[in-house]
C-alpha cells in the first residue's frame, strides 16, 4: 500500500559513504555491557502528559553514557471508553484497538506515515498483552483506542551495518509499549485485573570462542556479540500470570531449562518495570 497523500522522499535511500579516521582496530570495539546481567536500565515513567486524552503516559529508558546511543522514548494516549458507532455490531465487551507507530525519524531507516507490517505486528502483540489485563465486560457496547507513538527507537547510530538487529529491537520496543500502555490505561481509569508490564531477556554470546552463552536481562543488541534467542513477556505480578509471550531464536528442544530460565528472567525484568509503574501511579494518587 503506497502513501499517496503526502510527498515522500525517494524510495531508494542510500547510505552516505562513511570515512572513519580512527585506527582500524577501533572499528571492532563494541560497547560492552556495563550493567550486571540481571539489571534493567533505568526507566522514567510519567502519566497525564496529554491533557486532551482520557489517559496518557510517557516512558523513557535511560540513555547510556555513550553518545550516539539513544534510549527508547514512547508516548501513549488512551481515548475512551466511548460509545461504539451506531453501525458497529453489538459487543458484550469493550472493543480494544491498538495502534503502534514509529515516528518517521525514530529509527535509522526512515518510517513512512502509514503503518508498515512490523508496526501492525507490534499492535497485535500489544492488543494481546492488554486484553488479558483489562476487565472487558464492564464496558459493553463501547470502544477504546490505545495509541503508542515511538518517538525515539532503541538503536545504536554507529553500527549501521548490523543487520537483523531490528527484530531484537522490536522486542525491547514491545516491552516498553506494554508498560507505557498499562500506565496510560490506569491513568484513563479503565479497570484492569492488575498492572501489566513488559520485560525482555535474551540469551547472548559475548565471546567468539565457544563459551557457554549467558542470559542477560534488557539487552541492547549492539552491546552483545551475538543474540541467540530472546523473549518478551507481559506479566501480571499479583496474579502471577503471563498475558503475552513472544519468543524468538534458535534453541535445542532438549534444553528446555534454558527456555524456562529465559522466560523466568523476562518475568524478572517485567517485575522491575512494574515497580516503576506502581511508583508512578501511586505518586499520581497521593
Amino acid at each position: 500500500m503506497n502513501d499517496r497523500r503526502r510527498i515522500n522522499g525517494p524510495a531508494g535511500a542510500t547510505l552516505a559513504p562513511f570515512f572513519d579516521d580512527a585506527a582500524p582496530q577501533d572499528l571492532d570495539t563494541r560497547s560492552t555491557r556495563s550493567r550486571p546481567p540481571n539489571a534493567t536500565r533505568k526507566l522514567l515513567l510519567k502519566t497525564g502528559v496529554t491533557p486532551s486524552a482520557s489517559g496518557s503516559a510517557y516512558l523513557e529508558i535511560e540513555t547510556s553514557a555513550k553518545p550516539g546511543l539513544s534510549g527508547l522514548k514512547l508516548s501513549c494516549s488512551v481515548h475512551g471508553p466511548r460509545a461504539l458507532p451506531k453501525s458497529a455490531p453489538f459487543s458484550p465487551h469493550i472493543v480494544l484497538s491498538t495502534h503502534v507507530k514509529y515516528a518517521p525519524f525514530a529509527t535509522q531507516q526512515r518510517r513512512g506515515y502509514l503503518r508498515d507490517s512490523s508496526e501492525r505486528d507490534l499492535g497485535i502483540h500489544l492488543e494481546t498483552a492488554l486484553r488479558g489485563a483489562i476487565i472487558a465486560d464492564r464496558w459493553p457496547k463501547s470502544g477504546v483506542d490505545i495509541i503508542v507513538s515511538i518517538i525515539e527507537g532503541d538503536q545504536d547510530r554507529e553500527t549501521s551495518k548490523l543487520q537483523g538487529d531490528e527484530v531484537w529491537d522490536m522486542m525491547n520496543t514491545l516491552s516498553g509499549c506494554i508498560t507505557v500502555a498499562a500506565a496510560a490505561l490506569a491513568d484513563a481509569g479503565i479497570d484492569c485485573v492488575d498492572t501489566v508490564a513488559g520485560g525482555v531477556a535474551a540469551l547472548v554470546q559475548d565471546a567468539d570462542d565457544g563459551s557457554a552463552p549467558s542470559i542477560a536481562v534488557d539487552p541492547i543488541p549492539s552491546e552483545h556479540k551475538r543474540i541467540l534467542a530472546a523473549c518478551c513477556v507481559a506479566y501480571l505480578p499479583t496474579r502471577d500470570e503471563v498475558t503475552n509471550l513472544w519468543f524468538r531464536g534458535d534453541l535445542p528442544a532438549s534444553d528446555l531449562d534454558l527456555y524456562t530460565s529465559l522466560v523466568g528472567h523476562g518475568i524478572q525484568a517485567s517485575k522491575n518495570a512494574n515497580r516503576v509503574l506502581i511508583d508512578c501511579l501511586s505518586g499520581t494518587v497521593g
Partner: peptide
Amino acid sequence: AGEKQTGRNLRLLSIRTIDPPSRLTAP
C-alpha cells in the same frame, strides 16, 4: 546424547501468544 532415541532433534524457533477469541465471547 550417547543414547539411541527415536524421533528428531527438534529446535525451538519461536513462540507467540495468540489472543484467544474466548475473551470476546458473551458471558
